[in-house]
Amino acid sequence: MAVLNPRLRELQFHEIFQQCRAGHLAIVYGAATVRVRSSLKVFAQSLQSTYGAFRLPQSSQAKFADYHVEVTRPRNPRAFIRSQSQFRIDGIQPFDPFPLANALPLFEWGVNWCFGQRANQYVLLHAGVLAKGKRAVIMAAPPGSGKSTLAAAMMLRGFRLLSDEFGVLRPETGDLIAMLKPVALKNQSVEVIRAFSDKAVIGPLFTGTRKGDVAHLAANDASADAVHHPARPALVIFPAFQAGAALDSHRLPGKDAFAHLAFNSFNYHLLGAIGFEAIANVIAACPAYALHYSDLDAAISQIDRLLDKASEGTSVDAI
C-alpha cells in the first residue's frame, strides 16, 4: 500500500513556514500546481488552516509548477507607514497591494486570476462543480446568486467538491477536472455555513475587503484526496437564492441552457469552435434546470433527486 504524504494540518507550523519562505511549498489544485513563496507568518498560518486537508505533493508532482507566485511585503515607502501585502507571479504584480492582514484573500484572488488568464487549454466555466462518484453537477451562475454557499453546503452533505469557482472542462474528453480551492464565503454566507454544519472548517474572517467580509471554507479530506479524479457532466443547475422563497425547479430548453452556460464562461469567446462544441456536448448529455431556493437542505435534496433521474435517463417535472 502506497504511503501517503502528510496533510498540511498535520505538519508543525515551522515546517510550513520554512517551505513558504524558501519557495518550496507546492499546492496541487488538480488542474494546476502552484509553487508559493512567502515570508509572511500571518499568510502561512491562514494557508495552513484553509488548506489543511491538502497533502504535500509527491516528489514527482512537486518538480513542476504551472505558476510560481509570491506573497510579500512591498518595498516602497508606504509599506513603512501601513503594513501591506502584494501578490506577484513570475515577478509581475497584477494587483495593487492589500492590507497585510488580508494576504490570504489576495493570494486566493491572485491564483484565480492566474488560472483564468492562462489556462485556455480548458473551457473555464464560471461554475461550481460537485460530484457523487463519477457523476458531476455543474452549477453555473453570476456573482450574488448563492452558488458558493450552495456548493459549500453540498460538500458538507456528502458531495465531492471539485471547485466552487471554475468548472474546468477538458474539450478533448468532455470530462471535468478539479480546481480545488477553499470556498470563498462572503458576508452573511459565513454565518449561514457555520450554522449549517459543525463539520465546517472556516478560516479567519477578513473584513472590509473589496468583496465585503470574506472567510474561506476549507475543502474536506474526501475532496482533497480525489483531486486527480475527473468526473463526467451529468446535470446542469442554474441556482438562484431568494430569501423566503419556496423551492422551485424547472427544466430549461437546450438552447436556453446553452446560452446560460456559455454566458457563464470565462473564456468561451476566446476558444471559438472548441468552446462551442464542448458546451454543446455538455448540454446534449445533461438535463439543465433553473433552481430557485431559500432552504439549503431542500435545494440539496432536489439536486440529489435530479441527479438520480438524470442518471436513469428520465425527465423530472418541475416541483
Rank of each mutant, 00 (worst) to 15 (best):
T149E: 04
G212P: 02
P171D: 07
V28W: 02
A224P: 02
V42S: 15
A136Y: 07
G313R: 08
C114Q: 11
Q86K: 02
V111M: 06
S197E: 14
L271V: 15
R88F: 11
C20A: 14
F43N: 10
A218N: 09
Y51A: 09
E165V: 01
A222H: 01
A262Y: 05
K211V: 10
H126W: 12
N102R: 06
G208W: 11
T149V: 06
V316R: 00
G275L: 14
L25S: 12
N281T: 10
P77A: 03
L306Y: 12
A231I: 07
P182L: 04
L307P: 12
Q12G: 13
Q302K: 08
Q61G: 04
V227T: 06
L125D: 07
D90M: 10
A290I: 04
D164S: 14
F238H: 11
V123A: 02
R55E: 01
R118Q: 13
A31N: 08
G313D: 05
I283Q: 02
A44F: 03
L185A: 12
A195Q: 12
I319C: 09
A262P: 07
L270G: 00
L205E: 10
V282N: 00
S163H: 03
P171V: 03
L25Q: 14
L247S: 02
H228W: 00
L261E: 11
D295S: 15
F80E: 07
V168G: 01
A280W: 00
V214A: 04
F13V: 05
F43P: 07
Q19M: 13
G23I: 04
T50V: 14
D256H: 15
G91W: 05
R160Q: 03
Q188D: 05
V28Q: 00
